[in-house]
């Protein structure tokens, strides 16, 4: 579904991605793990078109998408839940969800809104509240619900566990698996390697802008290098 080859992205003179390659197949949960500063967020921003790569290709369903504008990429079916949730704090919960559906012209937006409220009943209760008044966990739910409102085929999630209590993280990860089970392909970026590998089909380990390891998630969980560097063995 998505094939990335030799991708390089710069911030000015800083080479944040040094030629990474990865592949996501339809229906999978693929995780990208790595320490702070490894280039995970940069990878997602490059896929979404927020930053233009300096070299390499991103092919989505057979089409080259690097260089396309972010709104065009959303319309092709790739949505992102950005790092730190980034809900529109002074818009209401409902308005945030409406913004998620901004690029759509079809008549089924209301139906999808009901689906999101089904996944996250708390959002329905809070729909008239400004998003800034929600707790961190609720904001994460809103950020995911907002991305789902675009009806993505591929959902990019940037550290959805960040700063949340373990119980809420569990809930959110269950929902991510649930979303995947209903047919949405997922690229999950995480620092919490154990959690990410336990829900993913395959994983990539990113270090200073390069892919160090790539394998099935189960194998990575038992890989001594991964255990030592990311699972605290």
């Amino acid at each position: 579904m998505l094939v990335i080859k030799n991708l390089e992205t710069h911030y000015g003179n800083i080479r944040a991605l040094k030629g990474i390659s990865l592949e996501i197949k339809k229906g999978e949960i693929v995780t990208l793990i790595g320490a702070n500063g490894a280039g995970k967020t940069t990878t997602l921003k490059t896929i979404s078109g927020l930053i233009k790569p300096t070299r390499g290709t991103i092919t989505y369903e057979g089409q080259e998408i690097s260089g396309k504008a972010p709104d065009a990429i959303v319309q092709m079916g790739i949505s992102q839940v950005p790092e730190g949730r980034r809900v529109f704090t002074r818009l209401t919960v409902l308005e945030n969800l409406e913004m998620g559906a901004y690029a759509r012209r079809d008549q089924e937006i209301g139906q999808d809104m009901d689906k999101v409220f089904g996944l996250f009943p708390i959002l329905k209760e809070r729909q008239r509240q400004p998003a800034g008044t929600l707790s961190g966990g609720e904001q994460q739910m809103l950020a995911i619900g907002r991305a789902l409102m675009a009806r993505p085929k591929l959902l990019l999630l940037d550290e959805p566990s960040m700063g949340l209590a373990p119980l809420i993280v569990r809930t959110i990860f269950n929902i991510i698996q649930n979303i995947n089970a209903q047919g949405t392909t997922i690229l999950l970026v995480e620092q919490n390697a154990h959690l990410a590998l336990s829900v993913a089909d395959r994983g990539y380990v990113l270090e200073t802008g390069q892919v160090q390891l790539a394998d099935e998630a189960k194998k990575l969980l038992n890989d001594p290098r991964v255990r030592k560097a990311y699972l605290g063995d």
């Binding site: 980034r86 529109f88 308005e95 998620g100 690029a103």
Partner: peptide, 16 residues
């Protein structure tokens, strides 16, 4: 309003 609050995230919503 969304663009005024956060342009990058607005772009991720498909807003031009």
């Amino acid at each position: 309003r969304a663009t005024a609050l956060d342009k990058e995230t607005a772009a991720l919503m498909g807003i031009n």
